[in-house]
Design a protein around this nucleic acid. Sequence first.
DNA 1: GATGGCTGGATTGTCGACATTATTGACGAT
DNA 2: ATCGTCAATAATGTCGACAATCCAGCCATC
Lengths: 223, 223
Amino acid sequence: MRVRAPRSDAYHQLREAIVSGQFHPNERLVEAAVAQRMGVGRTAVRAALVRLDQEGLVTLEPNRGARVRHISDREALEIEEVRGALEGLLARRAAERATADDLQELRQVISEMRERVERGDALGYSELNARFHQLIWTAADHPTAARIAGDLKSQAIRFQYQTALRPGRAQRSLHEHEAIFNALKTHDPDGAEAAMRDHLAEVIDTLRWAIDGLRRGERWLPG
Amino acid sequence: MRVRAPRSDAYHQLREAIVSGQFHPNERLVEAAVAQRMGVGRTAVRAALVRLDQEGLVTLEPNRGARVRHISDREALEIEEVRGALEGLLARRAAERATADDLQELRQVISEMRERVERGDALGYSELNARFHQLIWTAADHPTAARIAGDLKSQAIRFQYQTALRPGRAQRSLHEHEAIFNALKTHDPDGAEAAMRDHLAEVIDTLRWAIDGLRRGERWLPG
DNA sequence: GATGGCTGGATTGTCGACATTATTGACGAT
DNA sequence: ATCGTCAATAATGTCGACAATCCAGCCATC
C-alpha cells in the first residue's frame, strides 16, 4: 500500500486553506499567485480550481477566473435543510447497524460533551459535535450520503459559529444529541431519524434567528 | 444576456455521451482519443474529466487515466436512498409554495401519464415521470437540493430501465404520483413528503428485486 | 512451467510559450 | 463633467513538447 503524498498536492492544500478561512469569501484566486504560494505549477492549480468549483467551494467564471464562493444567507439555510435530510437518513441507518463499539464511542463523546457544556467551553463542544456526527456517518456505512453531507458541511462552515456560540444553544444541543444517542442505542431507526431531524431543525431555526439578528445590526459575539 | 456556446465545450459533450450510454461502464477514456472524437484539445478534455470525476460520472486514478464510473448495485441503492431523502424535502417545499400554474402543469402531466399507462407505453411514461419530478423541483425553488438530486439522477440513469420496465410497475407508480399530486394540490407539506418517500421506497424495493432477479440469471427484458 | 526482472510502446502529468480575453486608466469629444 | 474610445496591462485559455509513469510482452532463470 502506498502512502499518499502528505499534502503537497494543490487540491487538498487549497481546499484546506479555503475551509480554514485563509481566504475571504469572494476573494479572487489568481492562478499564478496561488501556484507560487503553494509551490506547485499553474496546471495543478487549474485542476484544483475545477474540482473546487464542482464541489461548491469556488466559483469559476469563464475568462474571469476563480473566486472563493460566497454562500448567501439563503443558501446557507438551504444547505442546512439538505444536511438535515441526509443526516436523518444516516441516523436511521446508523440505528439499524451500529455495533457495540460504535455505541461505546458515541457514549464517550456524549459524556465529554456534557463536561464541556458544564464548564461553558463552547468551542470544545463544537469540535465534539463534529466528532459525534462523524461517528454516526461511520456507523451508518453509507458512503454516498456521507460524502455529500461532508461536502455540504465544508460549504457551510463559515456559518457554524453563528449557531454554536449563540448563548444557551449548547445546553439544548446537548439534549438533542442525547435524544439521538438514546434512539441509536435502542436501535430505533424511526426514532433516530426523527431525533436527528429535530436537531437539525433547531440548528436551522437558530441560524435563521442569527441571520435576522445580524441583519438588524445586532452584535452578540464576544469582543 | 449572452447565449452560451451551444455544446462545443468538452464537458457537456462528454457528459452527454456518458449519460446517454455511448460509453460502457468501466470503459477507459483515453484523453487523446476523446479529444479527437470531440474536436477539442487534450487540455479541455482533462478539465472535463476532473469535473466529471468530482461529479461521480467518471473515476480518475492518478497516472492511470479515466474510466466511465461503474456504479455497483449497492451504490445504486444508496443513490436512490439519498434521492428519496432529497426529493422528500423538495416535495415538502413544493407543497408549501406551489403556484396555481405549477399545479396546472402537474395536473396535465398526471393526466398524460394516465393515458400512457392505459395504452401500455412504458417508455413514454418514463419520460413523463422525469418531467413530473422536474416540475416539483421547479416549484420547490430549492436550487441546492435540486442540483444534488440532478447529479444523483445522472449517476443512476443506467438502472432506470430495471425499474421502469418491470411489468405492473407503471400502474402502481401512477397511483403513487397521484398521491403526491393530491398532497401538493392541498398544500399539505407532511403529506407530500410522506407520499414522495413512499414512492421512492417503492422504487428502491423494485430495484432491489430487479437486482436480485438478475443475479439469479432471470431475464425479463423484452427481446 | 512458473517466477521475476527488463524493455518498448502507450498514456498521463507538467511545463513554458503564446493567443485570447477582461480590466483599468488616460485621453479627447461632446 | 460625462461618456465613449483606445491602448496598456494583467489574467486566463490553449497548445505542443517533453518527462514520468504504467503496462504488456519477452526473456532468462530456477
